[in-house]
Design a protein around this nucleic acid. Structure first.
Length: 478
RNA sequence: GCCCCCAUCGUCUAGCGGCUAGGACACGGCCCUUUCAAGGCCGGAACGGCGGUUCGAUUCCGCCUGGGGGUACCA
């Protein structure tokens, strides 16, 4: 293990095969929080040694996702495909020391071997045929141009124990470990070789990665030993399941975190949400800012059991974070979603919608009546239950008449005027307000009516009341 | 098949031998109320099973069951 006091350096090492999904974002976040908490570095590494699965644009997409979430990395990302020669050299060193060997077996032979093992109900593992090839013969065949891979030579007996920071002590019998491939016949390293070489070179102190790597962790530990390098500490994160209880990473349509941005979620809400997937501060606090997450983060509070992403909770969290924004900040975040409205016009309206929003995307519809006239009125909505069209038309007209003489247009003057009208009419304020609400906004669900009337302005309110009144008074549409 | 991991309300979790098993989301009810929210109060809801260890197990150990991962010249 690395020295306790050595500088903390961790990394998130995605392969560029697609988007940054919630599970990957959580791995990145945990690394980030740990690094910041310990005053260390958080690095990024692109594991693109599999040319077949490489997706152009994926790296940029992942980086944008990380930036959006605020998990900013230090230093320039390391790109594995640019380091082919370094891995080849490392593999050669391992061959020289006897910790690895060339394997000349063809894919066909390996297939056949596995089929036979399967038939005999034996574990499917490389049978180590080429491990017995003498060094000079191996050299000669390689020099002659014969295709080969390099395999790690696992110890044949004994056990390997990993002290995992999350899972605890995990012991494997060495004779169950496969002599897996380190260097492919195309000269590219597999994950196993590349990650060890890079983590050593990058002076990584802690490997915080997905639980999927746990089964190969002993091989990784052995590999560090084979190189005679001090291994980093390991922390394997339990996986994150989707709502269908399938692992997020494998789930069809695992969502890009950027889709959450499009859907109107705040990055601070998403961070808070994923932080609590498998971790908690050990207290009853549940709304934490990034700074608070950093302050409270520790690996020993990470759970060993998998967590299922509960998107309803994300909705709630998002609402909580929206409510904590200042009105100006909320207006700024809304600006991109309502490009036709100047931010300055948006700001005074924020108090009306702030506590009603769960996502940013709900705002444009909620505020629409401030910027557009209602399309048309549905009498069924306009007329309160138990009233008729004529009475409602009269009430709306009366409302206009009542409001027109007001010299001051504020909630303090509007509200008593309308309540007085309800009394004169013998209507409940509930009924009157609903009629007015629909007349003025075109909708039955709106921000508070009096405030809306006040901010909409006298002219537009009177015009809408009269228009609605005319709609009801006029001939019924056929 | 073989190897490995995991197991508290529906979900996220607190708990690290003695608790009326706590909080949050969601759900139901009530209050507030001009609609919708927000907020407040109340409620239902969990230690997978069986054996140990112990005066005492949610907690420690084993087995079983259940879930998951790995088992590629993918990461």
């Amino acid at each position: 293990m690395a020295e306790v006091n050595s500088p903390v350096r961790v990394r998130y090492a995605p392969s560029p095969t697609g988007a940054l999904h919630l599970g990957g974002a959580r791995t990145a976040l945990f690394n980030y929080l740990f690094a910041r908490r310990r005053g260390g570095q958080f690095l990024l590494r692109i594991e693109d040694t599999d040319r077949a699965r490489f997706k152009p644009g994926s790296q940029e997409q992942i980086e944008e996702g990380l930036r959006w979430l605020g998990t900013n990395w230090d230093e320039t990302p390391l790109i594995q495909s640019e380091r082919k020669a370094i891995y080849e050299k490392a593999a050669a060193d391992l061959i020289a020391s006897g910790a690895a060997y060339r394997c000349f077996c063809t894919p066909e032979r390996l297939d056949q071997m596995r089929a036979e093992q399967r038939a005999r109900h034996e574990p499917e593992r490389y049978d180590r045929l080429c491990r017995a090839i003498p060094a000079d013969e191996s050299e000669r065949r390689a020099a002659a141009g014969e295709r080969f891979v390099v395999r790690q030579a696992m110890p044949l007996q004994g056990t390997t124990t990993l002290q995992d920071l999350v899972m605890g002590s995990v012991t494997f019998r060495n004779d169950t470990l496969d002599d897996h491939v380190l260097l492919k016949s195309d000269g590219f390293p597999t994950y196993h070789l590349a990650f060890a070489v890079d983590d050593h070179e990058m002076r990584i102190s802690h490997i915080i990665r997905g639980d999927g790597w746990l089964p190969s962790a002993p091989k990784h530990l052995l590999l560090f030993q084979a190189f005679n390098w001090l291994p980093p500490a390991f922390a394997h994160l339990p996986l994150v399941l989707g709502p269908d209880k399938k692992p997020l990473a494998k789930r069809h349509g695992a969502r890009d975190v950027l889709e959450y941005r499009e859907a109107g979620y705040l990055p601070e809400a998403v961070d808070n949400f994923i932080a609590f997937l498998g971790w908690s501060p050990g207290t009853e606090e549940d709304i934490l800012t990034m700074d608070q997450l950093i302050e409270k983060f520790s690996i020993d509070k990470i759970q060993a059991s998998p967590a299922m992403a509960n998107l309803e909770r994300l909705d709630w969290l998002n609402g909580q974070f929206i409510r904590r924004l200042t009105a100006d900040a909320l207006a700024q975040r809304l600006a991109g979603r309502m490009p036709q409205v100047p931010v300055e016009s948006l700001k005074p309206l924020m108090p009306l919608v702030q506590e009603r929003l769960r996502t940013l995307n709900e705002a444009p519809e909620m505020l629409r009546f401030f910027f557009e006239e209602p399309d048309s009125y549905q009498p069924a909505q306009l007329i309160p239950k138990g009233r008729d069209a004529a009475a409602t038309a009269m009430a709306l007209t009366e409302a206009a008449t009542t409001l027109r003489p007001l010299t001051s247009w504020t909630p303090e003057t509007i509200e008593p005027a309308l309540r007085g009208l309800a009394e004169r009419l013998g209507w409940s304020s509930r009924d009157l307000f609903m009629g007015l609400r629909v007349a003025i906004t075109g909708r039955t669900v709106t921000p508070p009516l009096i405030e809306s009337i006040s901010r909409l302005g006298k002219e537009r309110v009177l015009a809408r009341l009269e228009r609605a009144g005319r709609t009801l008074a006029g001939p019924a549409p056929s």
